[in-house]
Nucleic acid binder design. Sequence first.
DNA 1: CCTTGACTTTGAGTTAACTCAAACCCATAT
DNA 2: ATATGGGTTTGAGTTAACTCAAAGTCAAGG
Lengths: 152, 152
Amino acid sequence: MADLSITELSNKFNINQNTIRYYERIGLIPKVPRKSNGNRYYDNKMQAWIEMILCLRHSGVSVEVLYEYVELLQQGDATLDTREQLLKDQVDMLVEKQKSIQVSIDRLNHKISLYESGEIKQNKSYFDEYQIANDILKDNEMKRKFKEPNNY
Amino acid sequence: MADLSITELSNKFNINQNTIRYYERIGLIPKVPRKSNGNRYYDNKMQAWIEMILCLRHSGVSVEVLYEYVELLQQGDATLDTREQLLKDQVDMLVEKQKSIQVSIDRLNHKISLYESGEIKQNKSYFDEYQIANDILKDNEMKRKFKEPNNY
DNA sequence: CCTTGACTTTGAGTTAACTCAAACCCATAT
DNA sequence: ATATGGGTTTGAGTTAACTCAAAGTCAAGG
């Protein structure tokens, strides 16, 4: 549980070093203390904070919201209620996300069961997938690229 | 259950018209049939397809994967196994996502409970939030903007 | 002394997925 | 006949969140 260099930290949390520095730049992470040579080091407190930030980011809590929370924290007790509400809102958001993912999982599992029972093979018009796929791709001999030509 | 115009469709599924046209352009949706005046209309089959695409997109299945599935479909029975595997992979991905969201929800709920019990207020150094927030923002009198200056 | 390798800063580039703007067409209501 | 409202295409712009490149510093090993 010693202090870590940025490389050690990025290995521990499996995160790009640039991302860590980026979070510091935009203010999600404090100005990190440096060794005599100017290199960053991360102590336990910092690691705990970063770990939390990454956990929430990983679940889709936006950088913007995280930064908002930091700002509120810094304003002290006057923002206790606001902060609590912010956290609750994020929970609500995540619960909604759970639900919509569950719907997709169920849908995909249903489809998979049709594959396993052979129904998809028997009944080519199930959900009209084949027909739709053909409609989509039939006049694509000129190999349309997946992405739009975005900028040249 | 009649055919819908693009406005009606976008209202029904609460999606931007541009997004629907974009999906058609990149090939997630077939070349949609037109009325005599050139306007798109969407029949039941098309609506079902779009509804599924949106459901999966909404849960984080990427446009790229969806397009891959369309391509496989169009190649017929030779790709049955590949398609089944693709669907299973997406389920795995979504299940992982569920788990990581659950971790975040638990973490946030724990924090919220500290707010509700007043512990956060009592113990300002809980998780060193205050201190960290101060470290982050203290020398920010020059009002650093949230986003990086990205391009001028 | 020189090289190597890990770090640094700054600004710019990338990616996915939209989202919009501009210029146009067409049918209907005033 | 003209204004309004809804659609159309094309190419370009936007957004969030990284991610990278270039050029530099520094300490340790040979």
